[in-house]
């Protein structure tokens, strides 16, 4: 059994990043305030949001981060959580209404809402959330940080390392929010048709499979940085690389499949809702003719 100081040590950040604590803590406070203000998002949405937030925090601000800095496959698992799993949970929780309700009204109405509606902000948001751009960014970031020379610098420089993890988390939330928004396109908000989202999810799966397979089947040591920086235990470079490649390949592609299933369920529910609305209005229009 681990002793109490050992457990505390494992929960303490390896390298404390105040910005992560601030953003995760801030989101948690806003969310709890939103619940207290009377929003009722449903139990599973609350659970999904809290779990997603906790996972993001755990992989960056506990002892886990130490292993992620020195073992390639643990780093890949970290990005799988930031860019896929936790981001999916947060997007599925659809937390924006709760977070908005948790904000002080003055801040929300006088600062956040006008800022959000400002034309440049909307332009940037809609550009990033244009499906081809979103798909390219999603896959592009994975490829970019895995270019051996870029990966080398990211693991060596503290600032670049932080930037890498922030970029994965933010892009993950943006991408999965675009893919898993329960609303169909409509006036007053930006969202994309369900069919396009399925295509987008399929499109990002293949490049991830190709990259993962390339890493798994590579003959040589692609990521020298782990030799340079030493390992927390004597794991061989090739074993580490193979597991890391498999994590880049299989679970990431599975997340696309899962995403498509969820989108199809939304789509189905939306069509049923539309049929219901037609059925309700049909007799009235029939009577008028």
């Amino acid at each position: 059994m681990a002793s109490f100081p050992e457990i505390l040590g494992a929960l303490a950040p390896y390298e404390w990043q105040p910005l992560v604590t601030l953003v995760v803590g801030g989101a948690l406070v806003l969310f709890l305030r939103g619940l207290a203000a009377g929003t009722r998002p449903g139990g599973w949405r609350v659970a999904a949001f809290l779990l997603g937030l906790a996972l993001m925090y755990a992989v960056t601000q506990t002892r886990y981060d130490y292993y992620a800095q020195y073992v390639f496959f643990i780093h890949r698992l970290q990005h799988l959580v930031l860019h896929h799993v936790a981001a999916v949970l947060i997007a599925l929780a659809n937390p924006l209404p709760v977070l908005a309700a948790g904000m002080p009204a003055g801040l929300r109405e006088r600062v956040i809402r006008p800022l959000w509606r400002a034309r440049p902000v909307q332009w940037v948001y809609r550009t990033l959330q244009f499906p081809p751009v979103a798909a390219l960014l999603f896959v592009g970031l994975i490829y970019f940080w895995l270019i051996p020379s870029i990966h080398f610098d990211a693991m060596l420089s503290r600032d670049l390392y932080a930037l890498m993890n922030w970029s994965m988390a933010i892009d993950g939330i943006l991408f999965w929010w675009l893919a898993l928004d329960p609303r169909a396109p409509g006036p007053g908000h930006y969202s994309v048709g369900f069919g396009k989202r399925c295509l987008m999810l399929a499109a990002v799966a293949f490049p991830q499979i190709v990259l993962g397979a390339y890493i798994v089947f590579a003959d040589s040591d692609i990521y020298q940085i782990y030799d340079v920086c030493g390992r927390p235990w004597p794991i061989s470079a090739s074993t580490d690389q193979t597991i890391g490649g498999a994590l880049t390949w299989i679970p990431s592609a599975m997340m696309s499949v899962l995403g498509v299933v969820i989108v199809l369920a939304f789509w189905h529910r939306h069509e049923r809702g539309a049929e219901g609305r037609r059925a309700r209005t049909a007799p009235a229009s029939a009577a008028s003719t």
Binding site: Y66, Q69, L156, C229, G230, R231, P232
Partner: peptide
């Protein structure tokens, strides 16, 4: 120096 070590 962002490096580490460990024992087998």
């Amino acid at each position: 120096y962002r490096v580490t070590y460990g024992y087998g």
